[in-house]
Design a protein around this nucleic acid. Structure first.
Length: 675
RNA sequence: GGCGAGGUAGCUCAGCUGGUUAGAGCGCAUGAUUCAUAAUCAUGAGGUCGUGAGUUCAAGUCUCACUCUCGCUACCA
């Protein structure tokens, strides 16, 4: 394996429209913190950067909804996120943000360089522009009269009445749905990164040269490359983001995925004037920690951008984790189904390492995993308290009791004693190997084995018995138990930094270096150690119940609060325009090559017609034949997957997206009017 | 539907290029022990390795089909 002179580590930028939860931590931030802390202890030259991703449409929407400026939104979450990371001991060298000036300059600079090298494809199209709102309008934000059927409220992309696909420019009397103003046709230019031209490069670089990447990452990349890459737009008509730095680009910003990864570079710039050697020197090892949803951006798009720019190095590895679930359900910010970091820190003060431990032990390294509070409690009580905390406590208490807290000397250690000391080095090697291969779960387990080793050693030697007959032997035993404790304070530092620090405080030592791990004389005979202090406290059932109840309450609330806002008022006439009737499904078959579509033949009472409906995920064709349904008959026909769909089946949808038929409770002849 | 990843003891996971009775931690049972936060230590019981075929002297490990979970993608008037 290549030896690198220095390391550049990045962690995915959290999106600043909400706080950070345990899924983020287990997937990205804790693994990278372990990795970086380890490298630092080894004395490596390493920089680790992260920051808030503050651009993009969702933030502007959230701002609009709350009547605020996007900057207010990102300011709020940036502070919450930054503080909670710090409190958990996530040791970024810098936590930056993409709304910062230096980021805008950096992103613009990179765009400009690629632009000047003709690295983009430019495409100009005529698009509607709203002079009042002063922005370009997406097709959906324009209504007008359909040139085919004369329907007055056709959308810019499609007429709902006759079903024809339209382009906004075909509409007669177009109107902006934002301001109501009459939009003007203006040429708008966009820039595309021609990913297709990077295909040969990506093929060689990933598929041939990085076979060691994790299977999920490698497989995902292969899938994308094999399917053929398309040029991707790198700009948007929006007023929140990094302005496109060329002439005649007013109202255009860089697409958020273009500017976000550049945030790594700008953060490094903000950190040190020496930033270039971390990003441009071939002897730097660049590692991106991300979640699986980010694989394509970090393995395909960002490297292509850097390649296009020309002067940057490419990542050596992109360790992506899978997702963490919570109590069996997907974590969801919008449904408030999460354990929020800032809340955890308040509710479990001083227990940062417990969360770090549980999330590492349970990290979704190879497949999605589940976090449960019961498991959280069990790991704390049975592993941290019983194995680790207990061992260190035993060693300290015994030393206090027998030798007044003075480290005793080793006198004629026998074979078993030496074997135990030597085992520390073996554990060290295993931990190193695992961390360097991004297997943190395994690494931490090995580290914990050191505490297991200590417990076993004490149980076998029984110093509390020997003290009556052979004090010299007890000295040797406790010396070794203390050396193990000291080594624990090193090996645990990457995983449980607060605990490692606590152990050092009790042992009254300060300096630690990874290479001291396994040293048999970390504590000199005669050194005075401090008083025993518990490393971990048991977590009682009550605390766990509280958390579980909190989640149950969320579940209840989600059930109740699933109301969409009430739509705009309509007139009775509007309602009566709809022709809703009961009907019966006569035939049903799956539309080939789709997941959700069923082609149905229904008896409407007046005729038999074909309807295509997106319900295949919840109903099998044979199950619904003969089923009574409610039909909207006079909906404009529309072609779906090549099949003309004449009407719509009415369905109720719950918050999880599950569908339910809406139909008369008792059997009724097809064709009965519903009003 | 296409593509990718995964399906190994109650739970969380190891099992490298196929090779003796499939491993670990936690939980569970029994025993030992009391220095320690009823903590620890030892021993043990738990698996037809998603299902079904095939290749091979030999398959959890290779091939094919099927099935379930997750993700990307197409697609839900």
């Amino acid at each position: 394996m290549k030896e690198f002179k220095r390391y550049m580590v990045t962690s995915a930028l959290p999106y600043a429209n909400g706080p950070v939860h345990i899924g983020h931590l287990a997937g990205v931030y804790i693994p990278s913190d372990i990795y970086v802390r380890y490298l630092r202890l080894k004395g490596k030259d390493v920089l680790w950067v992260c920051g808030s991703d503050e651009h993009g449409v969702p933030i502007t929407l959230k701002a609009k909804k709350e009547g605020k400026h996007p900057q207010e939104i990102v300011d709020k979450y940036h502070e919450i996120i930054k503080k909670s990371f710090k409190d958990l001991g996530i040791s970024f060298d810098i936590y930056h943000r993409t709304s910062a000036k230096i980021h805008h300059e950096t992103a613009a600079g990179i765009f400009k360089t690629i632009h000047d090298k003709n690295g983009f494809i430019e495409k100009t199209t005529e698009q509607y522009y709203d002079p009042e709102a002063r922005q370009f309008l997406a097709d959906r934000y324009i209504t007008g009269t359909c040139p085919h059927c004369g329907y007055e409220k056709a959308y810019g992309d499609q007429c709902e009445k006759c079903g024809t696909s339209l382009s906004a420019t075909e509409l007669i009397n177009p109107k902006s749905t934002i301001s109501g103003a009459k939009p003007e046709l203006k040429p708008t230019k966009h820039w595309f990164l021609p990913l297709d031209t990077y295909e040969p490069f990506l093929k060689k670089w990933i598929l041939e040269e990085h076979k060691e990447w994790k299977p999920n990452v490698y497989g995902q990349c292969k899938s994308w490359i094999d399917q053929g890459l398309q040029p991707r737009a790198v700009s948007r008509d929006l007023d929140w983001g990094v302005p496109v730095p060329v002439e005649n680009a007013e109202g255009k910003v860089l697409y958020v995925w273009f500017d976000a990864p550049i945030g790594y570079i700008s953060a490094t710039k903000a950190l040190t004037p020496d930033w270039e050697k971390y990003w441009k020197d071939k002897d730097t090892k660049l590692v991106h920690f991300i979640g699986k949803d980010n694989i394509v951006f970090h393995c395909i798009i960002f490297p292509s951008m850097l390649k296009a720019e020309g002067s940057y190095i490419l990542p050596d590895n992109v360790p992506a984790n899978e997702f963490l679930n919570l109590e069996g359900d997907k974590i969801s910010t919008s449904r408030n189904w999460a354990v929020w970091l800032h809340e955890y820190l308040e509710e479990f003060p001083g227990k940062q390492d417990v969360l770090r431990y549980v999330l590492t032990a349970n990290a979704p390294e190879t497949k999605d995993n589940d976090f449960t509070w019961k498991d959280f409690q069990a790991r704390n009580n049975n592993e941290l308290v019983a194995i680790l905390g207990n061992f260190v406590n035993r060693a300290i208490v015994l030393t206090g009791k027998y030798f007044d807290g003075l480290v005793p000397e080793r006198i004629n250690p026998d074979e078993a004693d030496t074997a135990v000391l030597n085992e520390i080095s073996e554990i060290r090697q295993k931990v190193e190997h695992s961390i360097e291969n991004f297997r943190f779960r395994e690494a931490m387990k090995e580290a914990m084995n050191l505490a297991r080793l200590g417990n076993k050693y004490l149980a076998e030697t029984e110093p509390w018995k020997l003290i009556k007959t052979d004090e010299d032997k007890v000295k040797t035993i406790l010396n070794i138990a203390l050396q193990i404790s000291a080594s624990l304070s090193i090996v645990l530092e990457p995983f449980l930094p607060f605990t490692a620090e606590k152990i050092r405080k009790i042992l009254a030592i300060d300096k630690i270096v990874w290479d001291d791990l396994g040293n048999h004389d970390l504590l000199k005979a005669g050194h005075k150690i401090g008083k025993a202090e518990l490393l971990f406290a048991k977590i009682e059932d009550k605390e766990i119940e509280y958390q579980v109840n909190k989640l149950l309450a969320t579940k209840e609330q989600n059930k109740e609060e699933s109301h969409e806002p009430v739509k705009d008022e309509i007139s009775y006439d509007d309602f009566m325009k709809m022709d809703i009737r009961s009907g019966v499904i006569l035939e049903a078959e799956k539309v080939p090559k789709t997941k959700k579509l069923l082609k149905l033949k229904v008896d409407t009472g007046v005729d038999q017609r074909t309807i295509v409906s997106g319900i295949a995920e919840y109903f099998k064709p044979e199950e619904i034949i003969g089923k009574q349904v409610s039909l909207l008959l006079n909906l404009a026909p529309r072609k779906i997957r090549g099949i003309q769909s004449q009407g719509m089946i009415l369905m109720a949808e719950d918050k999880n997206g599950k569908l339910y038929f809406v139909a008369p409770q008792e059997n009724i002849k097809p064709g009965a009017l519903i009003k």
